[in-house]
Write a protein that binds this DNA or RNA. Structure first.
Lengths: 135, 135
DNA sequence: CTTTACTGTAATATTTAGTATTACAGATGG
DNA sequence: CCATCTGTAATACTAAATATTACAGTAAAG
């Protein structure tokens, strides 16, 4: 899954604490300690989901697109997810084998099931909840 | 997470269906369509967990180490897990920032929480359950 | 007791995905 | 019109996953 989920959480936590103030990608990158362009790229993705609002030009920057209590970790998960949580095999199972022939379908079913469980949990936690853990 | 979880499930499903018969790494690799050495490597790991028993020498091979109903997907998950399901960031957050300073601890707490949720679910599904889905 | 068919494991190469960097056009406020 | 910011693409770099090869060790079978 890479590190995009924790990065996204970090970004949103900073914005949550900043309230209506706009934060720059440079500032955010300084807290996370990664490249500003990467911050902007991830924010571009989160913005497409309505989680962040951006303002261009001088004195531009970023703020949350919703109230911190209205942004759930499920939103974040869905925004950054590219692969199934338990991993995608890159093999092509043997279709001549009864197990090989059906395993992908059954793995998919399992993964949908697990995703549902995970999302139910993630929906109960907001960015506000998460950022309240900080001093 | 890579593809180790689905590969492990595939292996265990084949063994579950084979009952007391021993399957060779070549046969298993043929169903999954990956290299036999990789199969042996993953099985080596699963064997350390008691999920598989192996027999060396001519007419050697593999069979389940427990009844199919006694091997849960939680066992498999714990056997193959190397990274947190929602990903580990590889940055070092800025300790001079209040958020950066505490985020790793809070992410860890969150992950422990999510892992618990996931494991509870995975514990309810056995390899027998999974392999019964096949014709 | 030698041949054959397996496992166990390490060393190495290859591929792929993730991350980092650079660059620059576009927007906006001063 | 200059300074400071975002948006985005192109490219390079790094690290992790996977594949391949090789071979020693083990056990069955003749």
């Amino acid at each position: 899954m890479g590190g995009r989920f924790p990065i996204a959480i970090h970004i949103l936590t900073l914005l949550s604490k900043a309230g209506d103030d706009l934060l720059s990608s440079d500032y955010i990158a300084g807290s996370i300690n990664i490249n500003p362009a990467l911050v902007r790229k991830e924010i571009s993705n989160l913005r497409n989901r309505g989680l962040i609002i951006s303002k261009e030009g001088k004195s531009g920057g970023y703020r949350l697109g919703k109230l911190p209590g209205q942004v759930t970790l499920a939103d974040v998960y869905l925004a950054v997810k590219t692969q199934p949580v338990l991993g995608a095999a890159k093999n092509t199972p043997n279709p001549a084998c009864p197990v090989g022939k059906q395993i992908n379908k059954n793995i998919d079913k399992l993964y949908a099931n697990l995703d549902k469980t995970l999302l139910e949990k993630l929906t109960t936690i907001s960015i506000e909840d998460f950022s309240n853990q900080f001093d």
